[in-house]
Structures are given as structure tokens and as C-alpha cells.
Nucleic acid binder design. Structure first.
Length: 223
DNA sequence: AGATGATCATAC
DNA sequence: GTATGATCATCT
């Protein structure tokens, strides 16, 4: 038995509204999911549970979670104060063949074109079972937000194009940063080196900083 | 405390 | 290794 995919945005949002206020544990029981004691070994558990419950279709394919609707699902752990507790992974950072790439055609922009944010009260002192699901909402970047992301993307992708990937750290970027995205720090992938040669480096990913997602929450709930 | 760097599971 | 889902652990 699996959940059938939602056939409209309205249907999707009805499902989202129906799970608001429930705990992850309640939801997990209802759908025969096991709830881990902690997320040490299952960091993606909440996201995968919610995907299943809402009828997401993508699996591990590089397409939006709700492909037909063009919507990407992102769970967002928040504190008691309603602020994001973690950065939000967006996509892997391309390190080869980046000359000529544009923000308009980037994977980051495509991923963030239409996002279903689902806040979850995720303080570490709350066991996964008791974490409460908040009110999910749809979001599309404003012109200002898009420009903000574009600046960060272009600044950091330029360094990569110039063969300076190893100078990149999480300190760069106003709204979006580049950080490691790998099973461990010994994993390597190809990138452009300082002299234009191919070098081995740690795989990276784009992450939205908590200040940026915090503003998204603010704009949504402070109205 | 908050942010950066490191890491975990799974499918292919 | 890459892509999906992210949070953990450590340092400042």
C-alpha cells in the first residue's frame, strides 16, 4: 500500500493541512513507519516520512518531489521561537563544465522555483516521535529573493570556474552558501584546479542559510 | 548559541 | 560516485 499522488495543488495542500498539528510519531504509526529514537543514523527520516504521506513521486530521481505539479518539498526544522535550526540543502554544486552556465538555467533556481515548506518543531531535546508538524505553505522566490540568490550563486560559481573551489568555505554567500555534501571527508570528485587542470576535491552542495529561510517564515507567518 | 565542516541511510 | 533525504558534531 502506498499513498496515491495528489493530482492538484489543492489536493496536496489539503493533505498538508490535515497533518498540521500532528506529531511525526503519530503520522509514522498511521503509515506503519518505524520511529527512530534519534536521527543519528537516519537524518533524512522526517523528510522521507512526509514525502510518503503526501504522496511524493520522485524517489531518488533528480526531479521535483511532486513532478506533475512542479513542486519541491522541504521540511524545515524550527526552534521553539519558530526560527530555522538548520541550513537547507538545495542541490549538489557543479564543479565541471561550469563556464557558460547561467543562473537562469541553474539547478538551484529550478529547485527553488516552487517550494512547499513544511516547518517541524525540531529542537534536539524533543524526541523524533514527539516533534510537531507545523503549517506547510507554498513559496516562490520574490524578485528580490531571486536576485539575492543569483548574486550568491554567481559569486561562488565564478570561483569554481576559475579553478578556486578549494578557496570556498561556508563563510561565503549572503543567503546561500557552499558546504561539503558527501558521505565523509575522504570522498572526492573532479573539479577544475588553479591551472585549469582536473583536480580531486570534496563534493559540495548549495545550502540556504537559516537567515534566508527565517525570512521566508517571517513573511509567511507575520502577516 | 550559531554557523561551518563532517557525516549517515538508501537506491542505482 | 551521484542523487535523494537531511542533521550531527565541533569550533568560534
Amino acid at each position: 500500500m502506498r499513498v496515491i499522488k495528489p493530482h492538484s495543488i489543492n489536493e496536496l495542500m489539503q493533505r498538508v493541512n490535515n497533518i498540521a498539528g500532528m506529531t511525526l510519531g503519530q503520522l509514522a504509526q498511521q503509515y506503519q513507519f518505524k520511529t527512530p529514537e534519534d536521527l543519528l543514523l537516519e537524518k533524512g527520516w522526517a523528510g522521507q516520512l512526509i514525502e510518503y504521506v503526501l504522496g511524493a513521486t520522485a524517489g531518488s530521481k533528480p526531479v521535483p518531489d511532486f513532478e506533475d505539479l512542479g513542486i519541491e518539498l522541504k521540511t524545515l526544522p524550527i526552534s521553539f521561537k519558530g526560527k530555522p535550526l538548520e541550513t537547507t540543502f538545495v542541490s549538489v554544486t557543479p564543479l565541471l563544465n561550469v563556464t557558460g552556465m547561467t543562473w537562469q538555467q541553474s539547478n538551484v533556481r529550478k529547485k527553488l522555483a516552487h517550494v512547499l515548506w513544511l516547518p517541524i518543531l525540531g529542537e534536539r531535546e524533543i524526541t523524533p516521535f514527539d516533534r510537531t508538524i507545523g503549517s506547510g505553505f507554498l513559496w516562490q522566490p520574490s524578485a528580490i529573493q531571486d536576485a539575492q540568490l543569483q548574486r550568491d550563486w554567481e559569486e561562488q560559481m565564478e570561483l569554481i570556474a576559475l579553478g578556486r573551489v578549494d578557496e570556498i568555505s561556508g563563510h561565503l554567500g549572503d543567503a546561500m552558501q557552499i558546504r561539503p555534501k558527501a558521505a565523509n571527508s575522504r570522498i572526492v570528485t573532479d573539479a577544475i584546479g588553479p591551472n585549469g587542470q582536473i583536480i580531486k576535491t570534496l563534493p559540495r552542495g548549495f545550502y540556504l542559510k537559516t537567515s534566508f529561510t527565517g525570512e521566508i517564515l517571517k513573511q509567511q507567518f507575520q502577516l
